[in-house]
């Protein structure tokens, strides 16, 4: 039932698009089939998968770095009042700095290279992860802490069985919101200063030929890949983390 409703809503969307495109008769609003056609040709040339692959690896590397650093920072902030006092304001500033500003500054200060791109994504995403994990670390159950101390849990046991299970839901939440944030930023960063990737390709078709079919084609493919990752990996991870409830 749920699936049928979703399918109907997508079909109506596509039909509306098709009607609007026919009525407009302009290459600025291509019909759905023109986009599929572009995807097929670009994919046959290999450009599509090359660019998608490059963007994916940028998202992957920066996502991994931002998650690792953000989780560690967030736990430290949640557990140390003093560290939180020191870093709270810088974190707030970073959290409210537009992605565009961070990106441009990274390119200026680090150079127009791969490292700058990764630094820019990490700086954009890390504060969100840290803030979510800080909440998690603050909410640790004091009764379980006492229990662990009473039973003299060693550090490894405490981390694996008391700390990590309490933080897991926060890590998964940070990962899901973080992944969608990261890939959107990666595209902007590619547009501003990389010679390849989905963001570069979209900019190329925009500046060169106003090829809307190409722009939508690239977006559609990349969105599908990210949604697939969310459903196939992150949502399953979330279900696994909540299995005991």
């Amino acid at each position: 039932m749920g699936f049928a409703t979703r399918l109907v809503s997508v079909l109506i969307l596509l039909a509306g698009w098709q009607v609007a495109a026919s009525a407009a008769g302009s290459r600025l609003l291509p019909p759905p089939l023109a986009i599929l056609d572009f995807i097929a040709r670009e994919s046959a040339r290999g450009d599509l998968w090359w660019n998608v692959g490059i963007t994916l690896s940028r998202v992957g590397i920066s996502f991994f770095l931002a998650m690792t650093l953000g989780v560690l920072l967030g736990i430290a902030l949640g557990r140390s009042r003093r560290l939180n006092l020191v870093l709270d304001t810088p974190l707030l500033i970073l959290l409210n700095t537009p992605a565009l500003v961070l990106t441009v500054l990274a390119y200026i200060w680090v150079g127009l290279n791969e490292a700058a791109a990764i630094v820019a994504v990490v700086l954009n995403k890390l504060p969100n992860v840290a803030v979510i994990l800080r909440e998690g670390a603050r909410g640790l159950d004091p009764q379980l802490e006492e229990m662990a101390r009473t039973y003299r849990f060693d550090r490894r046991t405490w981390i694996a069985h008391v700390l990590v299970p309490q933080l897991q839901p926060f890590v998964v939440a940070a990962a899901r919101s973080g992944l969608s944030l990261a890939w959107k930023i990666v595209l902007v960063i590619e547009l501003l200063g990389r010679p390849n990737g989905v963001g570069f390709a979209i900019n190329y078709y925009f500046v060169q030929s106003l090829n809307v079919a190409a722009i939508l084609g690239y977006s559609l493919v990349f969105m599908s890949v990210m949604i697939a990752i969310d459903i196939l990996i992150l949502q399953r991870l979330e279900a696994y983390v909540r299995r005991w409830r």
Binding site: L144, E146, M147, T150, Y151, T157, H161, V162, W244, R245
Partner: peptide, 24 residues
């Protein structure tokens, strides 16, 4: 050699009964 049974059982909800006992 003190062991304590708390009023709220204070079990780790994400570990099975056996794991809860074994971890201590």
């Amino acid at each position: 050699g003190i062991a304590m049974a708390f009023q709220e059982p204070r079990l780790l909800p994400w570990r099975t009964v056996e794991q809860n006992v074994r971890l201590a």
